[in-house]
């Protein structure tokens, strides 16, 4: 196959990536800027790490980050369990009552505007509290439930598409060799689809970590997440600490994505070879 692309396509790719990365890189550069004006480079005192130090002493941001971590971890774990179950249901049982509804319910949250999901969840929690007294007030629990509802849709899609290409003969072979169904699941199926489950977990974590709208609707007093704090700060104008936060986020995400991608690329090669 010929891999040469036209000048036009190459230019488009170049400009496209510039568009994607210039804003991000500008945040990284200005996180080392000494000036409080953020975008005016103070060449006398820069580069500096002073905003990094100041971020690490910002109680409000650190508290919010801790809330975000808690919500994101519980959400990711819960979403993976629910999403894997739903993915199995859709991939393995071609015909069951309610398959269509389950399919629709798992696709809809992917595209549903967040304001709608957030509003409807809040109204549910209010109604439930009136009706049965649970959840008493809103906070981390209600937020996590909200996040799980849309994150599990993503996990379902990932797990389902992995299972569609899964050679069921592997499970049959294990059973043929004497393994009971439950054992087959844990010894054969789970290890093989593990990369998909890991991607699902990471994605669910990120979605939750990033979410502003649904959190705002479903959180209560004293349980502000990081995006909520960032949003209120940004509304008041730019702040050098946000640049630092963005740079740290970018660093962590890049490291993680590159590591996971490398690992997955190796796994994919194994999967591909053994399927052939």
């Amino acid at each position: 196959m010929n891999y040469r692309s036209s000048i036009f396509v190459l230019t488009c790719i170049g400009l496209g990536f510039a568009f994607l990365y210039i804003p991000i890189l500008s945040m990284v550069v200005f996180s080392f800027n000494a000036s409080r004006l953020v975008t005016v480079w103070d060449s006398a005192n820069s580069p500096t790490l002073k905003w990094y130090a100041s971020l690490l002493h910002n109680e409000e941001i650190l508290d919010a980050a801790w809330v975000s971590v808690k919500v994101a971890v519980i959400n990711a774990t819960g979403s993976v369990i629910l999403g894997t179950l739903a993915g199995f249901g859709l991939a393995r049982f071609r015909q069951f009552r309610g398959r269509f509804t389950l399919n629709a319910m798992t696709t809809a949250p992917l595209v549903m505007p967040e304001v709608i999901t957030g509003l409807s969840l809040l109204l549910l929690f209010v109604a439930l509290e009136q009706l049965i007294g649970w959840p008493a007030g809103r906070g981390i629990t209600t937020m996590t439930i909200g996040h799980m509802t849309f994150s599990m849709a993503y996990v379902t899609v990932i797990v389902n598409s992995r299972l569609v290409s899964f050679d069921t003969a592997l499970e049959e072979a294990a059973m043929d060799l004497g393994a009971r169904p439950l054992k087959v699941f844990f010894v054969i199926t789970l290890p093989i689809i593990f990369p998909a489950i890991l991607s699902g977990w990471l994605l669910a974590f990120t979605l939750s970590w990033d979410d502003l709208v649904i959190s705002s609707f479903t959180s209560g007093p004293g349980s502000s997440t990081l995006p909520m704090v960032v949003f209120s700060k940004v509304r008041l104008g730019v702040s050098p600490e946000i640049n630092v936060l963005a740079t740290i986020t970018l660093g962590v995400v890049t490291t993680m994505i590159v590591a996971v991608s490398l690992w997955m690329a190796r796994r994919a090669k194994i999967d591909k070879a053994s399927a052939g």
């Binding site: 003969a169 294990a174 059973m175 043929d176 093989i192 999967d271």
Partner: peptide, 19 residues
Amino acid sequence: PPYERPVNMMFQSYALFPH
């Protein structure tokens, strides 16, 4: 069930466990 039959099968795809 398959796991209790005195029978074994060689699958068309071989179904070797990749891991």
